[in-house]
Computed example of a mutant assay.
Amino acid sequence: MHSLALAADDEGGFAPPTISETHLPEIFPWMAEWGSGFGKNMLMVVLAVLAIWWFFSFAIRKQALVPSRLQFVAEGGYAFARNTLGRDILGEKHFKPWVPFLFTVFFFVLFNNLFGAIPFLQMPTFSHAGSAYAIAAIIWVTWIFMGFKLHGGRFLKLMTVPSGVPKWLLPLLIPIEFLSNFLIRPLTHSLRIMAVMLAGHIIVMLAGSGAEFLIAQQEGIGNASLGVLILLGSIPLYFLEIIMMVLQAFVFALLTAIYIQGSIEADAH
């Protein structure tokens, strides 16, 4: 794709944005030989932590019995994490210790996703595979740790040996269950959010660069009109992307709760 874009650019045609252009160069490339350093992606992570801390601290600073609109939103967000992600998934008996964790996961992913809809920032953090792998790895380690803590060595058997299955099928099913639960699960958990965020980011870039190219043409009003239509058409795409950002944060946190519930009640399956 990149070679085609370069060829089109050399011929004076439209050069579509490439995946490599979705992320800016590192701000502090302290490991330049590895192509790594402190970049915009890491900056977004830090900003998300600060933004979450500021928003909820500011919203509940008065703790009024009759809440303001901002306090109502903050309390509603906490209630969503507590009830929908915690109590409804983990159950009345187990959910309370996990509410802070699920609350953090949901709002951390949500704020990082919504950065893609904010002008000048305009980059969802989890459109970068490294960020998605990192947070999915945290969830995976938590799931594994809780499973072995609660069930000991039996957890490995509970996750790989389906109950009620004929013994002659076990040599086939055990490797499949192991791959599904211990390897494929964290990959799908991360790639789902990364793919959706990256796709939405590229669509917005493509619409913007295409409209700019058409409007800048000096070949009549037709191209400029088409460019304006693309800009107008990108408005509903923009709001659709916001919906997907919120939905993906919910799906990621929901799966996190389901995985934790699976480790807690693994012997019940």
Rank of each mutant, 00 (worst) to 15 (best):
V246F: 13
V105Y: 03
T256V: 07
F252Y: 07
G35P: 12
F58V: 10
S190H: 07
I258S: 06
A74V: 04
L237D: 03
V204Q: 11
S36W: 13
G210Q: 11
S57Q: 12
V73K: 05
F95C: 04
F115V: 01
V161L: 06
L6M: 12
G227A: 07
A137F: 15
I52F: 09
A249H: 08
A134G: 08
V228S: 01
L232D: 06
K167Y: 09
V246R: 05
N113S: 14
K96V: 13
M42C: 14
A59N: 03
I138Q: 01
N41D: 10
H189M: 14
A59D: 05
I138M: 11
R87D: 08
A216R: 12
A257V: 10
V105K: 02
T84F: 12
N41L: 10
I243F: 15
Q217L: 14
Q248H: 13
F80C: 00
H269G: 11
E26N: 12
A268S: 14
A74M: 05
I89Y: 07
W98G: 01
V99S: 00
G37Y: 06
F56G: 00
S68C: 08
G164S: 05
A211M: 06
T256S: 15
L214Y: 06
L6Y: 09
F115N: 03
F148K: 01
L229V: 14
A136P: 00
P162E: 02
I139Y: 07
G76H: 04
L173G: 03
P186V: 00
P119G: 01
L237G: 05
A207F: 11
A7L: 13
L172D: 00
R192W: 07
A211T: 07
P186C: 04
H269P: 03
S20Q: 13
I139G: 03
T104Y: 11
H23F: 10
L24M: 09
N223C: 09
Y238Q: 03
N181H: 14
A211Y: 10
F107R: 00
I258L: 13
F115H: 09
W168H: 13
F14N: 01
G164P: 05
I242L: 09
I60L: 14
L110H: 07
S36Y: 12
T142A: 15
F126I: 01
A8F: 08
K96P: 04
G86K: 05
M244A: 14
P17S: 04
E26L: 10
V251D: 08
N112E: 12
P186Y: 03
T22C: 08
M159P: 06
A79E: 12
E11T: 08
G220S: 02
L237W: 12
R61F: 10
V165D: 06
F107W: 15
V196W: 03
D10R: 15
Y238E: 00
G262L: 01
E219V: 11
L231G: 14
L183S: 09
L229E: 04
G39T: 04
P25F: 09
T188I: 13
F108W: 12
P171Q: 07
E26H: 14
P175A: 02
S127V: 02
A216H: 08
A132N: 02
L187D: 02
I193L: 09
L231N: 11
P25H: 04
F107K: 02
L179V: 15
W53Y: 12
G208K: 11
F239H: 02
G210Y: 11
S209L: 09
Y259P: 03
F126G: 00
A216E: 09
V141F: 14
